[in-house]
Write a protein that binds this DNA or RNA. Structure first.
Lengths: 246, 246
DNA sequence: GCAACGATTATGTATATACATATTGAAATA
DNA sequence: TATTTCAATATGTATATACATAATCGTTGC
């Protein structure tokens, strides 16, 4: 799946693809258990009647994906699944709402430009007290509030944000279209709604909420920190697996 | 990072690695913005004084990773980051607890073997009413309950589980060591603790909790469904980024 | 018996080459 | 002018080859 890419049954697979899917299928089905030595390159060369380079490319890819481990002079071995790594797709909120079949609506609640406070610097992992833009927004699914957004943008990294009101466009898509980001860190946790959040999401204070925080860097520079808060009933994150690697 | 692998500065990079890191660095830094046409293979061949095959392998890898898009006769182009995909590592609870520097302790609360009920079949996505093993466990960090586990195991897929009491070993590691799994789906959400969970985790009823549910398949067969519940203060999931793909 | 050494072997990396394939752009034709 | 055709071009895939590198095995020498 993830490693192999989509397998169109119709078209003729390339040799590379065929070797890849054959082997990973045998591993994932359990036919070749963890620790099993898979055939040597020269054996696969014979089996598939192709050059060693072709086999090598496929096995190297499986090794990079973490499904097998290769050791010189000894052979290639099926690795046991180690960590339960999953790919979590965190989409734009508009897309999530529209996937529910509900009309999406966005509201900018507040916008402040200021010198970064100590708290701002902690959230952004910023050294200097340069200017930041603080935003508060709400995202609606139909009439109901779907998510609350509290965001800081480092104006040293994204100067043009200072001229944007964010009345019509949400800061998330605005930033994605503009800033190539190179790293991000997400933190996901459950919290009880404080009064402010409860009012914004139209729920009871103390009700459980899902909080997704994201910090984004672009080439070493902190770009933005955002905290999304969802009412418990409104939202579930779904992560699809990947089987491999340690 | 994810695509490039760890970059040891000390050792001499292979040409392949050098091309890969050079190009992705230029993309991630923003020097080559989304839509930008990166040099043709024959130009890179000249720049790095290597064969086209070497360049091709590197570019193919970047394309597979979703950083660039390649179109014949036209060139290769930097893709814009589309979805905020993040890799969420869901480790074994013992490892998480020990990472906190606390002693880990496991308790099996209950164990029932039964024909699958309608609810069981819904959770496992099972068709037939074959036998299942229902387990309830608690995981401790020091003296405090850290997580509550409620698990169903499909005995049709893992018959040997019927003979295991799970007194000494937690079902998670036991299964991982035995069953090669090929797919998993995670659902993450916030809930209020009901009375049962509240008692198990030693928190107030109604307190916010983080719930991680996982369904696992092995070669088309449902293997297990597990629901972990964490008290809000005790746990934060951390997901690291990946920049690319659509 | 044990350490040192070299031969063997499987993988790692790179090259030159060949031909297939998709797309563009210009020339030829209707 | 509109359409078809064809050559040029960049990528896609595969081959044969070469040499490097790491680990193992068997032999030799102490």
């Amino acid at each position: 799946m993830s490693i192999i890419g989509t397998m169109d049954v119709g078209e003729p697979l390339s040799l590379h693809q065929r070797i890849l899917s054959d082997i990973s299928e045998r591993i994932l089905s359990g036919a070749w258990a963890p620790g099993h030595r898979i055939p040597f390159e020269h054996e696969l060369t014979a089996e598939y009647k192709c050059s060693r380079m072709t086999v090598n490319k496929a096995l190297s890819q499986l090794a990079k994906a973490g499904m097998i481990e290769r050791v010189r002079r000894t052979g290639s071995f099926v690795r046991r699944p180690q960590s339960q790594a999953a790919v979590l797709e965190i989409h734009d909120i508009r897309i999530e709402v529209e996937a529910l079949g509900l009309p999406y609506c966005y509201e900018r609640v507040a916008r402040h430009k200021r010198r970064s406070s100590a708290e701002d610097r902690a959230l952004l992992e910023l050294d200097s007290n340069g200017p930041v833009l603080a935003l508060e927004c709400r995202h609606f699914a139909g009439k109901r509030p779907f998510a609350h957004e509290r965001r800081l943008i480092n104006l040293a990294a994204v100067a043009e944000a200072a001229n944007e009101e964010f009345h019509a466009v949400a800061p998330g898509p605005w930033l994605i279209a503009r800033v190539p980001w190179s790293a991000a860190e997400h933190r996901i946790r459950a919290v009880a709604a404080d009064r402010h959040i409860a009012a914004a999401l139209d729920i009871e204070a103390g009700a459980p909420c899902l909080v997704v925080e994201r910090r984004t860097w672009s080439a070493e520079h902190p770009v933005t920190h955002v905290r999304f808060t969802y009412a418990a009933e409104s939202h579930t994150l779904v992560a699809r697996f990947t089987p491999s690697q340690g």
